[in-house]
Amino acid sequence: MKTPVPAAMPREFHYRVGAPVRGEVPGAHRSLRGGGGQEFRAHAPLVDAPDPRRLDLHASLRDPFGRWLVRLNRERRAVPVVLALDLSASMGFTGERRRLDVVADFAASLAWSASRNGDSFAAVGADEAVRPEWLLPATRARAAGVPLAQALRGFVPTGRDASGLRLAPQHLGTRRALVFLVSDFHWSDALLAEVLDAFALHDVVPVVVWDRLEYTLGDGAGLATLADPERGTRRTVWWRAALRERWAGAARERREALRRVFAARRLRPLHIDGAFDADAVTWHFLQ
């Protein structure tokens, strides 16, 4: 039975991996395998690569050693694509938009884009532990992201932190995957380092999902209630110009701190500030 395709398709975006991939399934990514691909890689003597169909007469005539040369092409292969989700309570923040609704839009587009590339798509979600109900085994079904996105839109997170993501790589299999690690990254520095180290064998794209209202609260002075959803605490403060500037400065400092941590591991974060934009994701990979 064919998987039903929804009437309104998610927006597709284009991604790429940094290094050639390994694998047996044809796909859209450069691989380490040579053979019947379209991308020229090198010439080799016929005795080392005995395939007369790929004989290059022009190159053979120019060879100073008089060898028969064949063309070696690079094949394109598929890569496993994984969505690793932070499901802690802070992901339930609602500002200009509900954060998990933005994540749902991203998840649906990622699954659709993976299927269009011939890649498999899998998902794993965690708060203090990896949640079995948020484990999606690798699939190439076109509509795999639709039920996942629907579940995210109706989910109310209550976890105190995202420490379970340290164990998420155990559910990814042995092949090197392209992992989109989605969170607000309001974590301790120690937890951030542990999670990134746990994913060290994979190509990781940190996806930082923030909302403008996390760090702003109007222009005037007045009382404001600040809430920490993961600790379950609330605090009332007098919102004034000096505090507003400190709050905005804290956002800039946190963004720069994340940049340094990611840069130390040669990772380039994808920032989603507000609504999800598929074209902005494509541009991120083209830079």
Rank of each mutant, 00 (worst) to 15 (best):
S120R: 13
S120Y: 01
S120A: 15
F121I: 03
A122P: 10
A122D: 05
A122F: 00
A122M: 09
A122C: 05
A123Y: 03
G125F: 07
G125C: 07
A126T: 13
A126R: 13
D127I: 06
E128N: 11
A129G: 08
A129N: 13
V130C: 09
P132I: 13
P132H: 10
E133N: 13
E133C: 09
E133L: 11
W134R: 11
L136N: 08
A138M: 01
T139A: 05
T139N: 02
R140S: 13
R142F: 12
R142Y: 12
R142D: 00
G145I: 00
V146Y: 03
P147A: 10
P147K: 06
A151L: 10
A151R: 15
A151F: 01
L152H: 06
L152R: 06
L152V: 07
R153T: 02
G154I: 13
F155T: 08
V156R: 15
V156A: 15
P157M: 07
P157R: 03
T158P: 00
G159H: 05
D161S: 14
D161N: 15
G164Y: 02
L165I: 02
R166Y: 00
R166T: 14
L167F: 06
A168G: 05
A168N: 04
Q170S: 07
Q170H: 08
T174P: 07
T174F: 00
R176D: 01
R176C: 02
A177T: 02
A177E: 01
L178F: 03
V179Y: 07
V179N: 10
V179M: 09
S183N: 08
S183G: 06
S183H: 05
D184H: 07
F185N: 03
F185E: 01
F185W: 05
H186L: 15
H186R: 12
L191R: 02
L191W: 01
L191P: 01
E194A: 12
L196D: 03
D197P: 09
A198H: 09
A198Y: 09
A198I: 12
A198L: 04
F199Q: 04
F199E: 03
F199S: 02
A200I: 03
A200W: 11
A200Q: 12
H202K: 08
H202Q: 09
D203V: 07
D203S: 04
V204T: 06
V205H: 01
V205I: 13
V207Q: 10
V208R: 15
V208E: 13
V208W: 15
W210F: 08
E214K: 10
T216F: 01
D219T: 08
D219S: 11
A221R: 14
L223P: 00
A224P: 10
A224Y: 13
A227Q: 14
P229F: 10
P229W: 08
E230L: 12
E230M: 12
G232H: 12
T236C: 06
R244S: 15
E245G: 07
R246V: 06
R246Q: 14
A248Q: 15
G249L: 14
R252Y: 00
R252H: 09
E253L: 14
E253R: 15
R254E: 15
R254P: 04
R255D: 01
R255N: 00
A257E: 12
L258T: 09
R260Q: 14
V261T: 11
V261Y: 01
V261C: 08
V261M: 06
F262C: 14
A263V: 05
A263S: 14
R265T: 02
R265H: 01
L267A: 03
R268W: 12
